[in-house]
């Protein structure tokens, strides 16, 4: 049967996986980063309706993903998505989002790791989930995230000589590209 977010969190804490910061309290979240969306909802309250996010220390991502995949009670064996979020121009951090799916327990889990914009580096998850390969390439070219240890960190959708990271909030549209006017 489907496992609730609290059950997954409880299991991770029982296993003592390092790097799990648990989920942010709504009030805490708004204090820490006023522009970041509230990731968790207190049970019984109306809204916000989004998914609770499991916050993970960026450098611990591979370990957490491995535990989530291999623990018989969790078994998040499919990595559905990896992406990055630039919450605001003035935000200090970029969010990296991992969407996991447990086919065995019919459960979905959203992970979030924050990396500083000044040095947006975190370890790659390709070794644990090969599915991360192209998603990380895309997140890399779109938001400037650097996934350390990625086997093939080339651009995937953009051309190799594209300047800037289009999904950053401070991105400036190019005026011309190889002699083609863009305005």
């Amino acid at each position: 049967m489907a496992k609730s977010f609290e059950e997954v969190l409880g299991r991770l804490q029982a296993l003592g996986v390092p790097g799990v910061i648990a989920s942010l309290d709504p009030e805490q979240a708004s204090k820490a980063d006023p522009l970041a969306p509230v990731p968790a909802r207190k049970p019984g309250t109306k809204g916000p309706f989004g998914d609770p996010h499991l916050l993970v220390e960026a450098k611990r991502i591979p370990e957490v993903l491995r535990t989530l995949r291999d623990d018989p009670e969790l078994r998040f064996e499919m990595l559905a998505d990896v992406t990055g979020v630039d919450y605001a121009k003035e935000a200090a951090n970029l969010g990296v989002i991992y969407v996991l799916l447990s086919l065995a327990h019919h459960t979905r889990l959203v992970l979030r790791a924050d990396v500083p914009k000044a040095a947006p580096r975190l370890p790659s998850a390709v070794e644990i989930h090969p599915a991360a390969n192209w998603h990380e390439r895309e997140a890399g070219e779109m938001l400037g995230l650097v996934f350390e240890g990625h086997p093939d960190p080339r651009n995937i959708l953009l051309s190799d000589d594209w300047v800037g990271f289009p999904l950053r909030k401070d991105y400036e549209f190019p005026v011309e590209y190889h002699g083609i006017s863009c305005v």
């Binding site: 969306p37 809204g47 998914d51 998505d81 989002i97 799916l101 979905r108 959203v110």
Partner: peptide, 21 residues
């Protein structure tokens, strides 16, 4: 309302997911 969420649906070709903030 402020929030972030992922929704996946079964498209003919597989799971189409939208993650909206």
């Amino acid at each position: 309302p402020a929030g972030a969420g992922y929704v996946g649906v079964e498209n003919p070709r597989g799971e189409l997911g939208h993650y909206i903030v």
